[in-house]
């Protein structure tokens, strides 16, 4: 990614971030005229956390997606298709509804542990250098299992309203989150992204093959452990606050590698920017679509992402791996 492309991406990201906070501008400026304090509260307490969460979650999905794709040497490995987000959701539901811990830190930890368990299971099922079919089947099995266990946990929960409570969150939602919640997701997310970026050169050399990377002095086992723990941390912390949001982690790295001449490791920075851009845009669609009611953001990303995924699978050849 050269400087001009990076600047264009950063500019586009700033623009959609500002749009996310300020749009629709007419009603916001009208409110400013009537009640300045209310308008400020609207921006600072409702729209800013929402935009920050979309930024952090999208960037985490982009960077983690690029990292797991580099790790598995496969462009279809993403946090959702590998069952990581489903595992995180299961961990969060178990923590709240079965174990009964409702503190935000407990929720985050449960979610991170769920994501970690899903990724570890995937690695043991599919192996380190996974064929596409094995990877997708193992990811599908883990997602299905985690989804079923999540439903079971909600059905068995002591609270009769568990399903109703959890529905919005499970579908993915950035609405009505506080600045504190944004920090709970955003700080681990930023930590994850910066730590992953430091692994970029090693993940690029992994493109030469695991054996060559080892012969060049890289500890591939440790690299694998680092990527998995960091992905679990970032994705888990975001899922705990915003629920499971799919497809960003698949799509963003694919576009990002077009900007880095196919380098899977150095694509992580671009993937983070593109992931943030896509999720903020999806949230703008949620807010501004004239439907009279709010769509879950996970539905919007799936409606855009699933056809893209189908196209990708149908055309899965070398040329499309860029």
């Amino acid at each position: 990614m050269n400087g001009r492309v990076a600047a264009a991406l950063a500019l586009a990201l700033s623009a959609v971030f500002a749009a996310s906070v300020l749009l629709p501008f007419g009603s916001l400026s009208a409110l400013f005229g009537e009640d300045r304090a209310l308008a400020t509260a609207l921006v600072v307490e409702l729209r800013l956390p929402r935009a920050l969460l979309a930024f952090a979650y999208g960037a985490t999905l982009g960077a983690s997606g690029a990292a797991v794709q580099a790790l598995f040497a496969n462009p279809l490995a993403s946090p959702d298709l590998t069952g990581t987000t489903s595992g995180a959701a299961l961990g969060a539901v178990m923590t709240v509804y079965i174990a009964g811990f409702t503190a935000p830190i407990a929720l985050s930890m449960g979610s991170v542990l769920g994501a970690l368990a899903a990724l570890t299971l995937l690695l043991s099922l599919a192996g380190p250098k996974a064929e596409t079919a094995t990877l997708l089947l193992a990811g599908l099995a883990i997602s299905a299992l985690a989804g079923a266990l999540t439903t079971l946990a909600l059905a068995l929960a002591p609270s009769p309203f568990a399903f109703y409570d959890a529905y919005d969150w499970l579908m993915g939602s950035l609405i009505d989150r506080s600045l504190e919640q944004a920090a709970f997701a955003g700080l681990p997310a930023l930590l994850t992204i910066f730590a992953l970026l430091r692994l970029g050169p090693a993940l690029d050399r992994l493109a030469l093959g695991e054996e060559v990377a080892q012969s060049m002095g890289h500890d591939v086992t440790r690299l694998r452990r680092q990527v998995i723990c960091l992905t679990a941390l970032g994705v888990g912390a975001c899922v705990a606050i915003c629920g499971a949001i799919g497809f960003i982690g698949l799509i963003a790295p694919i576009f990002a590698r077009r900007l880095t001449r196919g380098h899977p490791g150095r694509a992580m920075a671009a993937a983070a920017l593109i992931g943030a851009l896509l999720l903020i845009l999806a949230d703008l669609v949620v807010r501004l679509a004239p439907l009279g009611r709010t769509l879950p953001i996970g539905v919007v990303t799936a409606l855009i992402g699933a056809p893209f995924f189908l196209w990708l699978v149908a055309h899965m050849r070398w040329t499309l791996r860029a």
Binding site: A207, L208, G209, M216, R261, G262, H263, T319, R321
Partner: peptide
């Protein structure tokens, strides 16, 4: 990784590379 390539390099029997890099980029990664 900083010093190893000047000490030894290894060419595996497999000629498969998972990502469609440019030839010049692949050589530079070494």
């Amino acid at each position: 990784p900083a010093l190893r390539p000047a000490s030894l390099t290894y060419l595996p029997a497999s000629r498969d590379i998972a990502w469609p890099l440019l030839a010049r980029d692949l050589i530079a990664l070494g």
